[in-house]
């Protein structure tokens, strides 16, 4: 893996490797001393052209837990019409010796351009681009789903396992959602079945080519007993005429597509509720649903750190014998590396 630009970049083996590595990273995070020396001396740049405190902090925490040096570069508003171009920003970061660039950008494809235009030699991690992709979100969602739904509901070791047979409903603004696009691809790669649920105005033209079913009726889909329901954030401004007039009112949206206590009760006992955050409580999800025991939304945040540690580790240290600057990592292959990550130190909170 040279970059992580899209969930489609990962084949089944790679996706499972990321999840397994994330599990090992999560185990280290239960220790008293959470920091690993793996990326000591390496520099990770968080290049954020769009506000996202949550994602940035998650990547920052992940990099620091791996002992990387972290530079946060907030370039909001400076990219398109005025100020420094993406190209010049990238050249600057390259000159400063960035080993990895974690990029969040409002333009779909900006990470792809950054990775392929020859402006930087570092690994590029897509932290969300426009309406295109958010692959680490899909990975942390898959990781969370695997923990709860595979291997006897988390009681048995899920290492090496995919999500075959799992049915996930993704509900909400699919049209504008990079989370939905990444999840549809990754869940399919992992063998899960996906049903997209949204009002027809919020489903893209061309969705028929996606490996997912589409429904306009949330109650119908819940009645089929999905193993997980993933609620997407809906921006209130989408209802206005200027915002595109995608639905008549927040209330009508909530009636049709909001997850509330009544709908929660329709789910099978083992089903979990996910949301990428930040939530609009009362719009796409009620407090009853968001705070219910089957909501794993807070856990998703914690898992995000482990998954991003795994991604940075695999991109900067894993399977790359040409670099060799990292410590504590064997050069012998994936199995060896995995062993090394989980060696030493006592698990305190096991």
């Amino acid at each position: 893996m040279r970059h992580l630009l899209s969930a489609a970049d990962l084949d089944l083996g790679e996706a499972v490797l990321v999840l397994d590595t994330a599990a090992q990273m999560a185990a280290t995070q239960a220790r008293e001393i959470k920091k690993l020396p793996t990326l000591r001396g390496r520099t990770v740049v968080n290049l954020f052209f769009e506000d996202s405190t949550r994602t940035r902090i998650s990547f920052e925490t992940a990099a620091k837990r791996l002992s990387a040096d972290v530079i946060n570069f907030s370039a909001k508003g400076s990219s398109v019409s005025k100020g420094e171009s993406l190209k010049d920003t990238a050249l600057t970061l390259q000159a400063m010796g960035a080993d990895a660039v974690v990029i969040r950008h409002q333009a779909s494809g900006a990470p792809h351009t950054l990775a392929h235009a020859g402006w930087t030699h570092g690994a590029v991690v897509n932290a969300g681009d426009g309406m295109h992709q958010h692959p680490t979100q899909a990975l942390l969602d898959a990781y969370t789903l695997r923990r709860h739904l595979v291997g006897d509901g988390g009681r048995a070791d899920a290492t090496g396992r995919d999500l075959a047979g799992v049915h996930v409903a993704i509900v909400g603004d699919v049209l504008h959602s990079r989370v939905a696009r990444s999840n549809v691809q990754l869940l399919r790669t992992l063998g899960a079945r996906v049903t997209l649920v949204a009002p027809p105005t919020l489903v893209p033209v061309g969705v028929h080519a996606w490996p997912a079913e589409v429904s306009y009726d949330l109650d119908d889909v819940l009645a089929t007993g999905p193993d997980a329901v993933m609620m997407l954030r809906v921006q209130r401004e989408r209802m206005s005429s200027a915002g595109g007039g995608f639905f008549p009112s927040p209330l009508e949206y909530t009636r049709g597509y909001g997850l509330d206590a009544r709908r929660l009760a329709l789910l099978p006992d083992h089903a979990v509720v996910l949301h990428p955050g930040p939530m609009n409580r009362g719009l796409e999800i009620s407090a009853d649903a968001a705070d219910s025991p089957r909501a794993v939304i807070v856990e998703q945040v914690a898992n995000g750190v482990a998954v991003r540690m795994a991604v940075l580790y695999l991109l900067l240290a894993g399977g790359d014998t040409t670099r060799g600057r990292d410590e504590g990592t064997s050069r012998a292959g994936d199995g060896q590396e995995r062993t090394d990550v989980r060696t030493d130190e006592t698990r305190v909170h096991a």
Partner: peptide, 16 residues
């Protein structure tokens, strides 16, 4: 609008 609206725009997340 950024590109033709269809299968490719849906995949790429570009306004159709």
């Amino acid at each position: 609008a950024q590109m033709h609206e269809g299968v490719v725009s849906a995949e790429l997340g570009l306004t159709g």
